[in-house]
Simulated scan of single mutants.
Amino acid sequence: MITHWNDMTTSLQIFNTIKKFFIEIGELSYFAGRFFKEVFTKPFEFKELLRQCYNMGNRSLLLVSITGFILGLVFTLQSRPTLMEFGAESWMPSMVSISIIREIGPVIIALICAGKISSGIGAELGSMRVTEQIDAMEVSGTNPFKFLVVTRIMAATLMIPLLIIYGDAIALFGSSLIENLKGDVSFQLYFNKVFDAIKFSDIIPATIKSIFFGFAIGLVGSFKGYNCTNGTVGVGEASNSAVVYTSLLLFVIDFIAVFISDIFFEI
Rank of each mutant, 00 (worst) to 15 (best):
I100Q: 05
Q133K: 07
Y30W: 09
S201C: 11
E48I: 07
T82Y: 08
V235W: 11
S201Y: 13
G225V: 15
G120Q: 10
K146N: 00
L73H: 06
E38T: 01
V139W: 07
A114T: 15
R129V: 07
H4G: 09
G68K: 03
G141I: 01
L219C: 00
D196A: 09
F69H: 14
R102F: 12
D7L: 12
S99N: 05
R51C: 02
A171S: 14
N6S: 13
E48R: 13
L71N: 01
G122N: 07
S29C: 04
G120I: 12
L148P: 01
K116T: 10
N58Q: 01
L249I: 10
L62S: 12
Q188T: 15
F147G: 06
Y190N: 02
E266Y: 13
V149G: 11
I217L: 04
A110Y: 11
K182H: 12
L50D: 05
G221T: 13
R51M: 05
A206R: 02
F264Y: 13
T3F: 09
R59S: 02
T131L: 05
V96I: 15
L181Y: 06
V235D: 06
S261G: 12
P144H: 00
T246Y: 10
G236I: 15
F44W: 07
G174Q: 07
S241G: 04
F147W: 03
R129A: 05
E179L: 07
L63T: 15
L50F: 12
S90H: 01
V96H: 02
G214M: 05
V220E: 00
T82W: 08
F187D: 06
N227E: 09
F36Q: 09
A242C: 11
S60L: 12
A110I: 11
D254F: 08
F259N: 04
I66V: 15
V220M: 00
L172Q: 03
I253P: 02
Q78H: 05
L77S: 00
F195E: 07
K224V: 14
R34L: 00
I2C: 05
S11K: 08
Q133I: 02
F44T: 03
I153A: 08
F145N: 05
S239H: 15
L111G: 10
I267G: 08
S175T: 06
S60C: 11
S118H: 09
T151P: 07
M56D: 08
L28I: 05
I178K: 01
P161Q: 10
S247G: 08
I256R: 09
T41G: 04
W91Y: 08
I104A: 04
S65T: 13
F69E: 12
T76Y: 04
F213C: 12
V243R: 12
S127W: 08
G68S: 13
F46N: 04
M84Q: 02
I121S: 01
S99P: 02
F215M: 10
M92Q: 00
L248N: 10
E24I: 08
A114G: 15
I14G: 00
N16Q: 00
F46P: 03
T67C: 14
T76L: 06
E266T: 14
K116G: 09
L49Q: 05
V233R: 06
S201Q: 15
I66G: 07
F195K: 03
D262G: 15
G221L: 06
